[in-house]
Write a protein that binds this DNA or RNA. Structure first.
Lengths: 157, 157
DNA sequence: CTCCAATGATTGACGGGTCAATCATCAGTG
DNA sequence: CACTGATGATTGACCCGTCAATCATTGGAG
């Protein structure tokens, strides 16, 4: 019964929020750590390799890649620089537009992705899916959907 | 009905997982961005300032601070270095143990925290709480609890 | 009193991310 | 053809986080 009125969030809601966001963060970190020890890949590496693996000719334009994984160009460019040093990908000049950059998955990169993929899915199973009942999973889906809508995500194509 | 059997996660579960973790990440980023524009603080700064604000004498030993916000020492040390440059906190030698470092909230820091606090709580309300019904919030709490238990969090005191 | 292992904290190197600035090339206009 | 604005991508500066190495001090054990 404070004098502040509706200005302040109640303690329980705040606790729920903090637990929610902290748990998600810990999950992310654990997944990252498993991926790292299983395959020496970061989750960033994984996203890039996944997109390239699924692409026709194991190759994408830099901007297509950025769109497909939802990254800013500059972030991708920095990351590709690091991945190129490790020979996971290669950059080639683009045939039709010499401003463009064609990103190609190397054999090394493909192999690393193959090694990482199954353990990564298993980690998602172990750390997340196994913790929740089917009903809880439905609730997660529902509340995620509400959040995404509220935040204006799920861009209409 | 693949030949892989139980090895592989079904596509829907994977979608739920990806939406869950991606949404949490986007929420985190939006909160961070609001805090930044409202008060020129990062969420790291906020945690540190919050802990110091609540501490007796606006001051804590470095290791106490680390425990209280759950950070690694080295992370805290780096962060305090940056905060000290901005005069949000001050480091003093510890009276009883000269290995120790006493972290003190400056007036500048206290003022910054005061400025940031209310808008930050409002952002949590706007971006998270307002998106969910009371029932959904209960579901969030429940599933977070299941996850935390599964992950072995919530250390028994 | 002298070691020396344990403790509190910092440092450096490096991967990662954002933002603003830059660079090269392309494509349309006069 | 010469400009010029838009586009694709990279760069540099800076914040943030982890890990391993380091440094100073403390507090026994001998």
């Amino acid at each position: 019964m404070s004098t502040q009125g509706r200005k302040s969030i109640d303690a329980e809601q705040l606790r729920i929020w903090r637990n929610y966001i902290e748990t998600a963060e810990i999950l992310r970190a654990r997944l990252e750590s498993r991926l790292q020890s299983d395959s020496a890949l970061s989750s960033g590496d994984y996203h890039v390799l996944l997109a390239l693996s699924e692409a026709a000719g194991r190759s994408l334009r830099s901007s297509e890649l950025a769109d497909s994984i939802g990254w800013e160009r500059s972030r991708l460019s920095h990351h590709l620089g690091r991945m190129e040093k490790r020979e996971l990908i290669r950059r080639e000049r683009c045939a039709d537009d010499s401003r463009g950059s064609q990103i190609v998955l190397t054999d090394t990169g493909a192999a690393a992705f193959r090694r990482g993929s199954v353990p990564h899915l298993k980690a998602i199973q172990d750390l997340f899916l196994d913790a929740l009942s089917r009903e809880q999973l439905d609730h997660v889906e529902q509340m995620t959907e509400s959040l995404r809508e509220h935040l204006g995500l799920d861009a209409p194509s």
